[in-house]
């Protein structure tokens, strides 16, 4: 009789008005995995941003032989330091973009209002950042190392130390990026906030690489580096989430 009744598409209940759980919730881990997948897919759709930090790293390591000396015997003692300074700056370069886009288009707001854990979502974003910058840097570092006079046997040591170190760098950097996301032209400020906090990573990482290049056991600095990374893993996403909330206020 009522014409509207037949015209309506099958309407599913918009929400369950009786219970508090309005829909099958997603676990924090599943949500984080989705964020990770999204960020990876996004990065592969605009590749230029992926390549830039790597190119930056390559250029900085090239500058040192040009500025110091082409003799490998003179470059080798400083190879670890050069590698790490370059890796630090390359990872810093990519940090500015970590939350920038998501803050501008309102994605971060949606994350903060998702009813799930913002900490986990930001941890996932940081993980994506590491996969897209830290890991490629770790894979590229041995090339730069060899170019600076490191022996072939040092390759595993360089890869492992840079890989673990960049985990810590991404995590520490995520705090800085979250703190400065509301600030225009934040690059210099971001470095000022982040680099002092990165110093332990630089010290332990460079030492591990140095020992690896010298053909010695690098277990101790690597463990210290891993300890810093683990500490960062537990605390940095919390701090980043707090910072993001503050900047959304």
């Amino acid at each position: 009789m009522t014409d509207s009744g037949t015209m309506m598409p099958p309407v599913r209940p918009a929400f369950d008005s009786a219970s508090d759980a309005t829909h099958p919730a997603v676990t924090a881990l599943a949500a984080a995995r989705l964020v990770l997948a999204r960020d990876l897919k996004l990065a592969f759709r605009k590749r230029s941003q992926l390549v830039q930090p790597l190119a930056f790293f390559a250029i900085v390591t090239t500058l040192f032989p040009l500025g110091v000396s082409p003799e490998l015997s003179r470059l080798r003692p400083m190879a670890a330091g050069v590698l790490w300074a370059a890796a630090l700056l390359a990872s810093l370069l990519a940090l500015e973009m970590l939350f920038r886009d998501d803050a501008q288009d309102g994605t971060l707001e949606q994350y903060a209002l998702s009813g799930g854990s913002l900490t986990w979502l930001l941890a996932a974003k940081t993980a994506a950042h590491w996969l897209l910058t830290g890991l490629p840097l770790a894979l590229m570092a041995p090339l730069a190392g060899i170019a600076l006079g490191a022996p072939n046997g040092a390759v595993p040591g360089i890869v492992v130390s840079v890989a673990v170190g960049t985990v810590a760098l991404s995590l520490i950097g995520s705090i800085g990026a979250a703190l400065t996301l509301g600030i225009r032209r934040s690059g210099a400020l971001l470095s000022l906030l982040t680099l002092p906090l990165d110093i332990p990573v630089l010290i332990f990482g460079a030492r591990a690489t140095e020992l690896a290049i010298g053909g010695e056991a690098y277990g101790v600095p690597l463990q210290l580096l891993a300890a810093v990374a683990v500490l960062g893993l537990t605390l940095a996403p919390l701090a980043a989430a707090a910072a993001v909330r503050i900047n959304l206020e």
């Binding site: 705090i175 703190l179 002092p196 906090l197 707090a242 503050i246 900047n247």
Partner: peptide, 10 residues
Amino acid sequence: RASAVLAVVG
């Protein structure tokens, strides 16, 4: 609030 987060992290 933002600088407080930084101070605590520091």
